[in-house]
Design a protein around this nucleic acid. Sequence first.
DNA 1: TGCCATATACTCAAATTTGAGTACAATCAG
DNA 2: CTGATTGTACTCAAATTTGAGTATATGGCA
Lengths: 191, 191
Amino acid sequence: MSLKLLILGLLMEREMHPYEIRQLVKERRLLDFIKVRDGSLYYAVDQLKKDGCIDVVGVVKESNRPDRTIYRITEQGRKLFQELLMQQFAQNKVIEHPLYSALPFARYGDQARLAELIERKLERAEEQTARMRTVYDEHVGTVPKSVLHLMAGCYMHAKTEARWLRRLLRDAKEGRLGVKGESWDLDADDE
Amino acid sequence: MSLKLLILGLLMEREMHPYEIRQLVKERRLLDFIKVRDGSLYYAVDQLKKDGCIDVVGVVKESNRPDRTIYRITEQGRKLFQELLMQQFAQNKVIEHPLYSALPFARYGDQARLAELIERKLERAEEQTARMRTVYDEHVGTVPKSVLHLMAGCYMHAKTEARWLRRLLRDAKEGRLGVKGESWDLDADDE
DNA sequence: TGCCATATACTCAAATTTGAGTACAATCAG
DNA sequence: CTGATTGTACTCAAATTTGAGTATATGGCA
């Protein structure tokens, strides 16, 4: 599981408590690319502990803040880390877009309303494209190239989505979603 | 949940039993875009029944085949369908690539091995691009345009992934993943 | 005829994710 | 100085997904 990889990866750098992991993920802009819910985080940490991949180093009681349990990665954990890293690179599952399950039934919905929703999605995708571009530009030269690739990938995918939605919107606006249609040029860059 | 949308959408056409839904999804090539595990399918059907969105029409006992429970969509179900459809178009979550959680830690792994894995991923992405292109071409003129858009989206995303991986592979092969690197042209179409 | 693979039609426990809630502290505007 | 918001650090039940298993039947091949 990718969250375990994330936790172990950060613990390779130094000992941490779960909340600190959360903070670090945010700080490094990884939150823009990887979702981390509190529940999953603490669950994953518990699993890792149970499997002997991380150890409790100690509990810090700072005056009147809640206790913070600090963890360290073990030898076992380093092994799992390597496995998960390779696994993540080895697995080959096709990414699924939420619209994929909706599009086949688009003709049953109110066309005008759908066009509106698609328009909003397009706006978001364009914002996302711009944001990812900025994040990328801001990190050039300061982070390892693999991280740059991560940001680049996010930008490219966002841009592709925008391009996709732009055409979808055109057809939606003209109420063509339900009719059998001819081909268009999938590779054209018609922005 | 998108699986419920799928089930209700197919039941809009006619009454069916769960296994038939599975078959239909396969037949229409939707399986290429949407994953449907048996467990989830039967679970979702149970939920829909419990919520009164579908009714049991009857159980067919064909000689010595297992019984097939046939379901029909209810008025309630049609309402939920509309809701889910709109929800699916309205939701705006960024797609997450499995590599996103691995790339930040790529420098801790064996570089040669990673390059190999990336190469394999690239091959798969190229195959997927070609397959999706074929699926698209095969369906032009015979399916509603929204379905064509679905296939087009899948093709475009696969193509983008291949373009992304191609550059990643170049850096991985030269062991540059761990070093701080300069910018490259994200929009170039260097195939 | 015997054997194996595949198709049919599910079931189920275990793992994981989700989403909301808890409890206290600090900070800041009015 | 008071009330509202935000930050810290988790907890937990319920929903969902996963992956494997079950049981029967059919078709093909040797």
